[in-house]
Design a protein around this nucleic acid. Sequence first.
DNA 1: AGTTATACGGAGGATGCCTCCGTTTTGCAA
DNA 2: TTGCAAAACGGAGGCATCCTCCGTATAACT
Lengths: 192, 192
Amino acid sequence: MGEAGEKASRKPRADSLRNRERLLDAARQVFSAGGPEASLEAVARAAELGIGTLYRHFPTREALFQAVYAREVDELANLARDLAGGPDSGEALKTWLRAALRMIATKKGMAAALRPAVDTCAPFYTDTAARMRQAAEALVRPGALRGELRDDVTGEDIVTVLISLSYGTARPDWQGATGRMLDIFVDGLRRG
Amino acid sequence: MGEAGEKASRKPRADSLRNRERLLDAARQVFSAGGPEASLEAVARAAELGIGTLYRHFPTREALFQAVYAREVDELANLARDLAGGPDSGEALKTWLRAALRMIATKKGMAAALRPAVDTCAPFYTDTAARMRQAAEALVRPGALRGELRDDVTGEDIVTVLISLSYGTARPDWQGATGRMLDIFVDGLRRG
DNA sequence: AGTTATACGGAGGATGCCTCCGTTTTGCAA
DNA sequence: TTGCAAAACGGAGGCATCCTCCGTATAACT
């Protein structure tokens, strides 16, 4: 057994890997342009691949979202880890939320992609969801223990607020207003 | 000119009025059961009317939502008026938001119905939207003037937060968690 | 080169959106 | 009452999307 105890299976086909990438690129393009509701057929067309191929690689729209924005979620998780040590967890939280917001504003469709991550009773527990929750949790917990922040709020709650507020608001001043709302929310989190 | 300066036009047909009601009832049923994305054809079927009839009465999905939930929005507007006089505008706001939340939790689909109300650059300025915004504004303004609350937050912002947080969260503990988030937000609104 | 697992592609059935127009119903006036 | 025209009905039909299924093509292995 050459690899790490894997089932001795055939190497994945080259065209499969290549097409997966093509699909991800196309999806990024299409979602970015046409919003998250863009048709999957459009994605397949943009990738110059059959619709069947798309569905084989990503059985659901969510699976595609997840794959498309995995990188971004990673970044956020890392940022949370870096910020978690700081002295003022309220400020850390604000910083993190702002970063997330900026990212969401850039990558249109990301909010929608994360949305199912908010939905606890979704058919499949998404990895993305867990990552985001843990990141937020890491930011909130210390402050709660120190009595700096309310302790009845979970990482999941934070993520829910973030995603909900980001999702679908189409106003021109969107980013600014939403940032303000998030700050206000964090202020409300502070004890005293 | 018998009436109030109206164009002397023919009395609306009886079947039209009757069918309008049938459609509203059916829509209430269907949206309540199947969520706000339920197909309009399903509504028409439930009303035992043709799809064409539905579209004639309510040219868009939004128009239907609007008509379905007009009553509820009225109630909320009235409640806001009643609460607006109180001494503690933070508390008043919390009370109002909780009432709104309860209503939304009951009438599934109402959040979705109100969603376009949040979207300032929607094709048509909905009446519902304006009503909700004014209601919230009436609750926030006095507090802001008295220096009790932040003054950089509009009624529109409040409604946005309410609707966004209510929309689409499908967790079982939904209502409780969201209520808590809204309270926290209002706390954050208070001047420290 | 031959074999076989794997992937591709797109036709096709199901459903939903919305429009259009022939048919039916209703209000009104003679 | 009767007749007429305005108004409403209903659903077929064109288009788009979703998602599945399976015959064909192709890459990995021997």
